Simulated scan of single mutants.
Amino acid sequence: MSHALQALRAIVLRELLKFARQYGRLVSALVRPLLWLAVFAAGFRNVFGVAINEPYDTYIPYDVYIAPGLVGMVLLFNGMQSSLAMVYDREMGLMRLLLTAPLPRWWILFAKLTATAVLSLAQAAAFVLVAWALGTTLPVIGPNTPMVLAAAVSSALMLGALGLLLSVHIKQLENFAGTMNFVIFPMYFMSTALYPLWKLEESGAAWVYQIARFNPFTHAVEWMRFALYDKDPGMSPFIVLGTLALCFFLAAWGYDPQRGFGQLTKRGG
């Protein structure tokens, strides 16, 4: 157990130190959601209007509504970027050395997932602070704080596990951009990050509404949104945790060269 915890600590510290040297990474992670918050939220404020709908007890401006979705955007993009790092490490041979450590492969992958979640949460916290400075305040501190943390941590782990799973199938760095376009943008735009489900249903976009209903990212955002206001998130926690378990299991299976569909040893991983 001590050896396993030492490996976990080493992998997390490696990712944190690498991130600390990449100043532009934090800036790029914040620019995208802040543009939505400072520009698009201001422009669409009167288009979307305000509404009283769960979990809100009063009318809210649009920037308050999309803030949890923008936190989800930070978690989503960092989770996907972790798959890029995995592909890069595999091409450079670092993953081969790491996976030959005298520890179960699933534990090594869990350590990588933990490191991804820690970085995602750090970037999300930075976004919340900058959003607060811009005038968009989220009720993070209070009796609801444990539920907010549980929702944020679970969402970060789920999206990191999805990134792990994608890294099994992305063979080369050149294929990364195309694959991400088929994952990040559909997951984000076909969710409740930017507009509520009732808006989709009301507008007649039935197929988008149905996709958003079953999109795991929708439930990650809704869990965080409901947790902020100390309301019951319904089935969202179960869907997020179930997706996390499934993605991690499939990723661990894919990184097993004997059983996995990835067969990494055949491609030098």
Rank of each mutant, 00 (worst) to 15 (best):
residue 256 D to I: 01
residue 258 Q to M: 09
residue 231 K to F: 04
residue 54 E to F: 06
residue 125 A to M: 12
residue 72 G to Y: 02
residue 217 F to R: 06
residue 261 F to C: 08
residue 116 T to H: 01
residue 175 N to G: 14
residue 77 F to W: 12
residue 229 Y to D: 05
residue 196 P to W: 03
residue 54 E to I: 11
residue 12 V to A: 13
residue 150 A to Q: 01
residue 88 Y to K: 15
residue 213 R to Q: 09
residue 11 I to A: 02
residue 83 S to A: 05
residue 269 G to E: 15
residue 38 A to L: 15
residue 121 L to C: 07
residue 59 Y to W: 12
residue 51 A to F: 03
residue 63 D to E: 12
residue 158 M to Y: 09
residue 6 Q to W: 13
residue 229 Y to R: 11
residue 181 N to Q: 12
residue 54 E to T: 07
residue 17 L to T: 12
residue 70 L to K: 08
residue 4 A to P: 06
residue 193 A to F: 07
residue 32 R to L: 15
residue 120 S to P: 05
residue 12 V to H: 02
residue 119 L to V: 07
residue 186 P to N: 06
residue 25 R to T: 13
residue 205 A to I: 02
residue 210 Q to A: 13
residue 110 F to W: 00
residue 89 D to V: 09
residue 240 V to H: 04
residue 57 D to K: 10
residue 54 E to W: 05
residue 13 L to R: 13
residue 32 R to P: 07
residue 97 L to E: 09
residue 150 A to K: 03
residue 267 R to Q: 12
residue 208 V to N: 03
residue 63 D to T: 02
residue 10 A to H: 14
residue 78 N to P: 07
residue 39 V to I: 15
residue 190 M to R: 08
residue 218 T to Y: 05
residue 48 F to N: 00
residue 38 A to M: 14
residue 86 M to I: 14
residue 33 P to A: 04
residue 250 L to I: 04
residue 114 T to I: 10
residue 256 D to N: 02
residue 244 L to D: 10
residue 65 Y to Q: 00
residue 171 K to T: 13
residue 205 A to E: 11
residue 168 V to W: 06
residue 37 L to V: 15
residue 109 L to Y: 00
residue 87 V to M: 11
residue 84 L to F: 14
residue 144 N to C: 13
residue 30 L to I: 12
residue 166 L to V: 05
residue 51 A to M: 08
residue 171 K to I: 12
residue 268 G to F: 01
residue 13 L to S: 09
residue 92 M to C: 08
residue 126 A to Q: 06
residue 243 T to G: 03
residue 131 A to S: 11
residue 115 A to Y: 05
residue 99 L to Q: 10
residue 191 S to V: 04
residue 36 W to T: 08
residue 147 M to I: 07
residue 218 T to D: 04
residue 141 I to N: 11
residue 43 G to L: 15
residue 236 S to Y: 02
residue 254 G to S: 10
residue 15 E to H: 14
residue 23 Y to D: 10
residue 22 Q to D: 15
residue 87 V to Y: 10
residue 68 P to E: 03
residue 26 L to G: 02
residue 123 Q to C: 10
residue 221 V to S: 04
residue 153 V to N: 05
residue 185 F to N: 03
residue 199 K to H: 01
residue 102 P to H: 00
residue 67 A to Y: 04
residue 131 A to V: 00
residue 222 E to V: 02
residue 170 I to Y: 05
residue 82 S to P: 01
residue 51 A to R: 09
residue 106 W to M: 08
residue 110 F to A: 10
residue 148 V to S: 00
residue 168 V to K: 01
residue 202 E to F: 13
residue 237 P to Y: 07
residue 210 Q to D: 07
residue 260 G to P: 02
residue 56 Y to H: 11
residue 66 I to Y: 06
residue 137 T to D: 02
residue 22 Q to L: 15
residue 52 I to Q: 09
residue 232 D to Q: 01
residue 236 S to P: 03
residue 101 A to P: 04
residue 18 K to D: 14
residue 104 P to F: 07
residue 213 R to S: 07
residue 190 M to N: 09
residue 20 A to E: 09
residue 149 L to R: 05
residue 44 F to I: 04
residue 233 P to C: 11
residue 1 M to K: 12
residue 78 N to V: 04
residue 189 F to P: 10
residue 21 R to V: 03
residue 3 H to R: 15
residue 198 W to G: 11
residue 121 L to K: 00
residue 263 Q to R: 15
